[in-house]
Structure formats: structure tokens, C-alpha cells
């Protein structure tokens, strides 16, 4: 590749998904992230119960991201040919896992009233601290 600038990358991604879909996807990602930050700030704490659900959904997100990538690119696990391929696979999985976790956490938080949030749960077996 001749010049890999931020602008080139932006242009390539726009062409990949079409300008409209690209900006919609980017907007969705930004909105979800902002919503996540919003509930964190609003609740002033991380709810461990919601966090647990978010964590449980992570493997699903990882697998879904990998399968989706393979489906749209006519490829399979057998095509992994070298270390860089494993790294790409892990990155795709990680993006899927983190994305879904944030989404699940945020959706749960938005669906509940802020008042319903219990204080931070701790790992001391409920003995208080």
C-alpha cells in the first residue's frame, strides 16, 4: 500500500460498507459507548449483577463475530494459515466480546430505573465491609 493515512483508511472503510451504512455503524457504536458512559456516570457505580450478565454474553459475542466474519468472507477455520491469522481471529473475537458486553450492560441499565440500582456488590460473601 502506498500511503496509509487516516484519510485513506476512512475512505477505504466508507467504500467497504457504503458511506451511509458506514456512518450509521459508526454512529451506533458512538451512541452505545456514550450510553454506556452515561449509565456509569448516572449510577456512579458498576452493578456487578449486570456486569455478570455482560460477562456471560461475551463468549457469545466473540463466537458470533467470528462466524459472521467468516460467513461474509467465504472462509472457515481451516483457512488459518499462520500466526497473523490467529491474531486476526482473536481481534475479531475480542471486538465481538467487548462490543456485546457493553451493549448488554447498557441495555440492562437503561431498562431499569436508576433508583433500582443496589450499591456496589462486593465479594465478601455479603458480610458488608
Amino acid at each position: 500500500m502506498k500511503e496509509l493515512t487516516f484519510e485513506t483508511l476512512l475512505a477505504v472503510f466508507q467504500e467497504m460498507f457504503g458511506a451511509t451504512l458506514f456512518w450509521l455503524m459508526l454512529a451506533a457504536a458512538v451512541i452505545i459507548t456514550l450510553a454506556y458512559l452515561y449509565v456509569l456516570i448516572r449510577d456512579r457505580s458498576l452493578s456487578m449483577r449486570r456486569f455478570l450478565w455482560a460477562q456471560l454474553s461475551m463468549p457469545l459475542g466473540a463466537v458470533a463475530a467470528v462466524l459472521l466474519t467468516q460467513a461474509v468472507t467465504n472462509s472457515h477455520f481451516r483457512d488459518i494459515g499462520g500466526p497473523i491469522d490467529v491474531i486476526v481471529l482473536l481481534i475479531v473475537a475480542a471486538i465481538g466480546a467487548i462490543g456485546v458486553a457493553i451493549l448488554v450492560y447498557t441495555v440492562q441499565s437503561l431498562l431499569r430505573r436508576p433508583g433500582a440500582v443496589r450499591p456496589v456488590q462486593t465479594y465478601d460473601g455479603g458480610q458488608g465491609g
Binding site: T73, S75, I84, L89
Partner: peptide, 14 residues
């Protein structure tokens, strides 16, 4: 490599 295939299949046209 799979990544080189991804380049051809996804990134090249873009």
C-alpha cells in the same frame, strides 16, 4: 494466509 484472502475479498475493492 487467511488475512491475505481477507484483503482480496474485502479490502481490495474498497
Amino acid at each position: 494466509l487467511w488475512i491475505s484472502w481477507l484483503m482480496k475479498e474485502v479490502a481490495l475493492k474498497a
